[in-house]
Design a protein around this nucleic acid. Structure first.
Lengths: 236, 236
DNA sequence: CGCCTATTTGATAGCCGTCAACCGGAGTGG
DNA sequence: CCACTCCGGTTGACGGCTATCAAATAGGCG
């Protein structure tokens, strides 16, 4: 959240003073389980996580991805029943903060509540873009768009490696995020590679021609709301 | 928001005391335009509205639908650039409240901020369900699910007519909401009708077998978070 | 009555899913 | 050190769901 809202010294101190518990979790661990009451609110310190929902036929849809620095459950801060699950994509480290403490802090400190709101609104914006991505783009664009988004979000936090994007997802998971099958994801990645838009080395991905990639992915980072939002609301 | 959070007398009075301007708009009018700075925050009093985004190929995706009582732009209350457009689906009546007044109120009254947060979180939950709907369900289920969602949301506000669901969307718009073409929407509606799940009279739709409809639509209203959320956060 | 939009229907094409097989690397145990 | 196993990636053949194209019908509104 620090990336988007300018917090004052006192607010930062209040956040840092919250009781929290740091834990390591293995890939695949559940952080939030659909249908249960939300517990502590975890913040992702290291590793990747994702939100998922299941259809009645058993198929999975990944509805969002999370990178280090993301809060993993502000979604349910004010709701009483989790409407989706959150799972670790890789080995992760999270700091869990009791929901009640966060709620009290949000009530007591409007600037903090504002920061939470901005974080939630940005995530909602990403969700809307995903609806567009899955609903109106073909397979190649969808995958390209997903890659662009992850790269842009990681770049914002200086988390790209020297090689580029180190994507810890299987092709099946990419399929679950884009509404495709792993087989077709494989073919499209191949195509993107053959056409020169990406270079692959294992799961590392580099973009030799970022502008071209952006174009064929129909990727415009506006919806990520990168850069700080004005603190007008905070100072009002 | 009143549907989900219990507001105190003073908070309600503060909301009612906000400066606002009531306007009528024709179907198709823009309420928010993507790429521009958000202006006043409108609340939908009568009629239907939708959010949309465009892909580079010109195809449209409707990312959410709104019924009377919905706030139409809490999304951008704390963001500086609209990431999508909001348009009137029918002739509508909106009450526009200046963004600054709402922000100040949210800063001054934590319970109001809480109500905004709940509203936003529920809408985000609906967005996630839409990602699942468009990504992992086939055409018949998608359309059935959309119909169920709208019916459930209208029912919560006692807005169903004696006939049932009075849906003011063209089949093309249903397609834009589900990632399908109008031609295929037509075929699937026909199928749903032939199989006895819906009855149609113009754009009015009735469900002779709601439980069956729910089942074939894979619709479970959990994600709508109907009923009031506890006000624990408000009283904390 | 005439225009325009929305709905309906049929024929055809294509994207992507399904099924199946094979490859390849990492980890494990002998 | 090597064989085995397992998971993920790769490839090909085939089928089905949905898009596309086209045209006819129906409905709303002047």
């Amino acid at each position: 959240m620090d990336n988007h809202v300018v917090l004052g010294v006192e607010d930062k101190a209040a956040l840092a003073a919250l009781p929290h518990e740091v834990r390591d979790l293995n890939a695949g661990s559940y952080i939030v389980r659909e249908g249960t009451a939300p517990g502590a609110c975890p913040v992702l310190l290291e590793g990747f996580a994702y939100r998922q929902k299941l259809a009645s036929n058993g198929e999975r849809q990944i509805v969002s991805l999370h990178i280090p620095g993301d809060a993993l459950d502000l979604q349910h801060l004010f709701l009483d029943c989790a409407d989706h699950s959150v799972q670790a994509l890789t080995k992760i480290t999270v700091a869990s903060i009791p929901r009640s403490a966060l709620r009290q802090l949000a009530m007591a400190r409007p600037v903090i509540a504002h920061a939470f709101a901005v974080s939630n609104q940005i995530e909602a914006s990403i969700n809307r873009e995903w609806v567009l991505n899955v609903g109106r783009r073909d397979a190649k664009m969808r995958i390209a768009h997903l890659l662009c988004e992850i790269a842009a979000r990681l770049a914002e936090r200086d988390l790209l490696t020297v090689y580029g994007l180190e994507l810890p997802m299987t092709q099946e998971q990419i399929g679950d995020a884009t509404g495709l099958t792993s087989v077709h994801v494989n073919r499209m990645l191949k195509t993107l590679e053959l056409e020169g838009w990406i270079e692959r080395d294992g799961r590392a991905i580099r973009f030799p021609n970022w502008e071209g990639m952006r174009r064929i992915a129909d990727f415009s980072p506006l919806y990520l709301h990168l850069g700080r939002q004005t603190a007008a609301g905070a100072s009002a």
